[in-house]
């Protein structure tokens, strides 16, 4: 087991691994896995953003996939109108990444502001339920958008967003693009939770009444972190839409919010790097459990790998509270 003093070295090693990953995969003749690696990096952005809420502020949000969906739909809808040469509320569609990506972040932040302002009036289990309900609301909203494919969602026929000098349609370039954004977001969150504001969040998690009594309004701080986390998830959603060139209501299904929570817990809450590892293991299981079962001759389990994953999850919750992070690092203090 490592001490937390080794964290910087661990970060460096992880970053190095992610940077050389495309070479390894190409050398191992499995470059198709670059797509999985891209998914990992995008998923990790979403997981880190949720950790800000669950781990650092103690807000169990069960509707985080909603913001992921909002980000994805901003990309999808603009691409759709660009293709059809029609307008959305008077605006032309576009594929220009420098417009689309900031807009996706902005609009998901706006949704998070509205949803957070209402949901944060409740506490505890009511907060879990109200975020779940907002998630469902957006899910049904997307389902009812017949113009954008309703249930089935829509394809981005003209490919990914366009950036100056960076060709996102090249899958290795796209991987590095997502990796760069992930790194920036991770560093931002890393600084955020160690800032004065981060300490306010930790204090709110421990005892909200105490914060109120020393003159800090928990509500504003919670709303701010909710908006930041929502914007982060929206960014991840926008990248995911670009990655799959496909957007559907399924992105905001409540089980996706559940998946994000699993990843955060699996990795270890309140650690940032934990959820990244969680995302890694989750996608690894998703990708390789079917193959492993196939190799073992258990074809029945190959299709139904979740029948094994469910109990694994339960065991982790019951017996490994600190998650992967706790397995690797010894907490100090």
């Amino acid at each position: 087991m490592l001490s937390e003093k080794h964290l910087p070295a661990f970060y460096a090693l992880g970053a190095l691994l992610l940077i050389i990953l495309p070479w390894i995969l190409t050398a191992a003749d499995s470059s198709y896995l670059i797509s999985t690696a891209t998914r990992l990096v995008i998923f990790a952005i979403g997981a880190v953003s949720l950790d800000l809420l669950i781990g650092y502020t103690g807000l169990v949000s069960f509707g985080h996939a909603a913001f992921f969906g909002v980000g994805a739909y901003v990309v999808g809808i603009l691409a759709f109108h660009n293709f059809e040469e029609t307008t959305f509320l008077g605006f032309d569609g576009t594929l220009t990444g420098l417009i689309v990506l900031p807009l996706a972040i902005l609009i998901s932040a706006l949704f998070a502001l509205i949803i957070g302002a209402l949901a944060l009036r409740t506490k505890g289990v009511y907060f879990i339920m109200i975020t779940l309900s907002f998630g469902q609301m957006l899910f049904f909203l997307f389902v009812s958008l017949e113009a954008y494919g309703g249930d089935d969602g829509m394809m981005m026929f003209e490919g990914r967003n366009i950036l100056p000098a960076i060709d996102l349609n090249d899958r290795i370039t796209f991987y590095y693009f997502c990796l760069a954004i992930f790194t920036a977001f991770f560093l931002f969150c890393h600084r955020l939770v160690r800032s004065k504001f981060g300490r306010v969040l930790a204090a709110i998690r421990q005892n909200e009444d105490r914060m109120t009594s020393i003159g800090i309004r928990p509500y504003s701080a919670k709303l701010l972190i909710f908006v930041i986390a929502g914007a982060g998830a929206g960014l991840a959603g926008a990248l995911m839409a670009n990655h799959t060139e496909f957007v559907s209501p399924g992105l905001t299904h409540w089980t996706k919010s559940g998946d994000l929570m699993i990843v955060v817990i699996l990795g270890g809450i309140g650690t940032l790097i934990g959820p990244v590892m969680g995302a890694f293991v989750f996608l690894l299981l998703e990708e390789f459990l079917p193959i492993i079962f196939h190799e073992l001759g258990m074809d029945l389990l190959k299709e139904h790998w979740r029948v094994v994953f469910g109990p694994i999850l339960i065991l982790i919750v019951l017996f490994a509270k600190t998650g992967l992070y706790g397995l690797i690092f010894k907490k100090e203090g």
């Binding site: 169990v60 699993i262 817990i265 469910g310 109990p311 999850l313 339960i314």
Partner: peptide, 8 residues
């Protein structure tokens, strides 16, 4: 929530 999600 997580353990019972695993049950689902």
């Amino acid at each position: 929530v997580l353990a019972t999600f695993g049950l689902i």
